[in-house]
């Protein structure tokens, strides 16, 4: 059996779980197989698969561990999942959260300055929200102690905000002088608007990222969070394992590259001519291109459907090629089992 067949079979056997739970398990086995291959290069893919238990027996263990319970609020759900955000994974649960609220008062740190050029943010569970304004300012709130207090430092035009583990919310105003924003977060969500021509590199583990760009470049990476990007971007790179992606871009001038393992990708491109590359293993791709644009389009899927409103698509076993006019831009869409829709 090939790795893909094994993964597909496991996903099918886990049909009794929610899509989120199933994706998480399937991705973990996929990751496990990658590790196994790295550690035993002497074995073939088939031999590595043969060492694993059959998908049906793995699914049976999950079923025994987690029989589907009544999904009513709170009932039958583990403690760690109660009261969380919808869709929040239990990994967001931190036991000490329940005590610190009783123990500590809410604190706030705030400040600002002129002439900021670069901003680096590190967050554990702190949500980050940023809007555009005339001066740089920050306000960070949470219930921290001396040890977990946020650290803010400045060196010329470079600012660094380390939110610490107990901050809940960071609010920023970003001025036109900002050139670059780099932010990393484990489970805090990011909702960020950038000033003109500022670039952003945002990474998260399980949190969602939403970015409005105004002419700079954007790089968004997440393991399981959803990614959203809108506005004008010179180039955009999005990478995720299981999160969905939503792109709404105009005036793009160089390239868009979005890839995910099991998330869906939805992209609307209003105008401009960019090279667009969308890839997903099991998620669906939906792409809306500007009307009357001239694109060379290549869409490939192994077992998904390809639909295009711009003319019939002939499907072979793998792939279909379409050409609209003789525009310089190239659109490339590829999935293993997801559907591809182009309008």
């Amino acid at each position: 059996m090939t790795k893909q067949a094994y993964i597909d079979e496991l996903a099918a056997e886990l049909g009794f779980m929610t899509v989120e739970e199933r994706d998480d398990i399937v991705l973990e086995f996929d990751s496990h197989l990658n590790d196994a291959r790295e550690s035993r290069p002497d074995l073939s893919e088939e031999e590595l698969i043969a060492r694993l238990p059959p998908p049906a027996s793995i699914a049976a263990t999950y079923l025994a561990e987690f029989p589907r319970q009544a999904q009513s609020e709170g009932d039958g759900k583990p403690f760690s999942e109660r009261g969380g955000r919808p869709g929040a994974s239990s990994s967001d649960f931190r036991f000490h959260d329940f005590f610190r609220y009783a123990r500590r008062d809410e604190e706030e740190l705030s400040g600002g300055a002129e002439g900021i050029e670069r901003l680096v943010i590190e967050s554990v569970a702190c949500d980050i929200s940023a809007r555009v304004g005339s001066e740089f300012s920050y306000a960070i709130r949470g219930r921290w102690d001396d040890e977990s207090k946020p650290l803010i430092s400045q060196q010329g035009g470079l600012w660094r905000i380390d939110c610490g583990r107990d901050a809940d919310m960071l609010e920023l105003t970003l001025p036109e002088s900002l050139v670059e924003l780099i932010a990393t977060s484990a489970s805090g969500d990011m909702k960020i608007s950038l000033p003109d021509e500022a670039n952003a590199a945002l990474r998260s583990a399980s949190s969602d990222i939403s970015l409005r760009c105004a002419g700079g470049s954007a790089s968004l990476t997440s393991a399981s969070g959803d990614l959203a990007l809108e506005g004008r971007a010179t180039d955009a790179q999005l990478k995720s394992a299981s999160g969905d992606m939503d792109l709404m871009l105009s005036g793009v001038c160089s390239s868009i590259d979005a890839s995910t393992k099991s998330g869906d990708i939805q992209a609307r491109i209003e105008d401009g001519s960019a090279d667009v590359k969308l890839q997903s293993m099991s998620g669906d791709l939906s792409l809306r291109l500007p009307e009357a644009s001239s694109y060379e389009l290549e869409a490939e899927t192994v077992s998904g459907d390809i639909q295009s409103s711009r003319g019939s698509v002939r499907r072979g076993l793998v792939g279909a090629k379409l050409r609209y006019g003789d525009g310089p831009a190239l659109v490339y869409a590829k999935t293993l089992s997801g559907d591809i829709r182009i309008a």
């Binding site: 991705l27 583990p78 403690f79 999942e81 990994s91 649960f93 931190r94 995720s240 394992a241």
Partner: peptide, 12 residues
Amino acid sequence: VREGMLASTWDM
């Protein structure tokens, strides 16, 4: 993880 004994995060 569900029982709150372990925390998990995806790292890319």
